[in-house]
């Protein structure tokens, strides 16, 4: 029996849906496991057959996390560091990006920009130790600054902001503002920044993901419990004797939710942020 062309196509589409649905379930499974484990008693986490649905749902794991760890402080630290890092980097990158885009006659501009581009080639691994040493010399170890400042001078960010400024900020607009007597910084602040918003949102999201999830650098420069970030608290709980997995899972849910929720609300900006890097880079 020969299937007609449209029946064939119909079958292929159904197969595609089934395939995507199975994959979506597979990809979501670790999240499901994380979430239900956060509500299980410890012995339920390791019971056989596995407990797929906690009974009862225990909220006491969260209570234990709040009681026995500095999770609230860590949450605050993570928020301060992520926001500080994003703000600083976005400010530096948009200001310099604007300058590189809109002052074509400044002597040495092209050489300086070529220099910025060349710095994109430097992998962070090479500068790990010296940056640590610099922070020691500045007495910045175990401070917010150690987490906020080092990665903020992002060559990639400048490159991107320059590109976006060139394509979207019109010179007429700048000239009109100059005739109105705006200072150059005022022009950046009130004329250019509003236009850059979409690009800033996208770049901000990339920086936010990196900063919020950063474990290695936190592990190197943060030393006391009052400075720990969420990933570090979770990592250290995992290293304790008789690992308290039920608490780790609860803390993990708290560390994971903010970005997941942000992603669900701002999907478009997330995707734009990720892809802009590839198309422009």
């Amino acid at each position: 029996m020969r299937l007609s062309h449209s029946t064939q196509q119909q079958l292929l589409r159904i197969a595609a849906y089934v395939f995507l649905a199975v994959m979506a379930v597979l990809f979501m499974f670790p999240f499901y496991w994380l979430f239900v484990s956060a509500f299980k008693a410890k012995d339920q986490i390791f019971s056989l057959p596995p407990v797929l649905w906690p009974d009862p749902w225990r909220f006491s794991n969260f209570a234990a996390v709040f009681e026995k760890t500095h999770i609230v402080q860590a949450f605050i630290n993570s928020v301060v560091i992520a926001c500080g890092h994003c703000t600083l980097a976005l400010f530096l990158c948009s200001l310099a990006g604007f300058a590189f885009a809109k002052y074509p006659h400044a002597p040495g501009r092209d050489k300086l920009f070529a220099f910025v581009l060349a710095t994109m080639m430097i992998p962070g691994a090479v500068t790990l130790i010296p940056v640590f040493v610099v922070l020691c010399k500045l007495h910045a170890i175990n401070t917010y600054w150690a987490m906020i400042v080092p990665g903020a001078a992002s060559a990639f960010g400048i490159f991107w902001m320059r590109q976006y400024t060139m394509e979207n900020v019109h010179n007429d607009l700048l000239d009109a503002a100059r005739i109105d007597g705006c200072s150059e910084f005022r022009i950046y602040w009130s004329v250019v920044l509003p236009v850059l918003k979409p690009a800033m949102a996208a770049l901000g999201i990339i920086l936010l993901i990196g900063s919020w999830n950063n474990l290695m650098w936190a592990f190197i420069v943060l030393r006391t419990t009052d400075m720990y970030t969420l990933p570090l608290v979770i990592y250290l709980l995992n290293g304790e004797n008789r690992t308290p997995f039920e608490m780790i899972m609860a803390a993990s849910v708290l560390a994971t939710l903010p970005l997941v929720i942000a992603f669900l609300f701002f999907q478009r900006q997330f995707i734009a942020g990720i892809t802009a890097g590839a198309i422009k880079g």
């Binding site: 994959m23 979506a24 990809f27 979501m28 670790p30 999240f31 496991w33 994380l34 484990s37 993901i209 919020w212 999830n213 474990l215 969420l230 990933p231 979770i234 990592y235 995992n238 997995f245 780790i248 899972m249 993990s252 560390a255 994971t256 970005l259 997941v260 942000a262 992603f263 669900l264 999907q267 997330f270 995707i271 990720i274």
Partner: peptide, 17 residues
């Protein structure tokens, strides 16, 4: 969203799960 969510999850959480 289902396929992309792993990217925004803290690596330490992923590894422990």
């Amino acid at each position: 969203a289902a396929l992309f969510l792993p990217v925004v999850t803290p690596m330490v959480v992923v590894a422990i799960v």
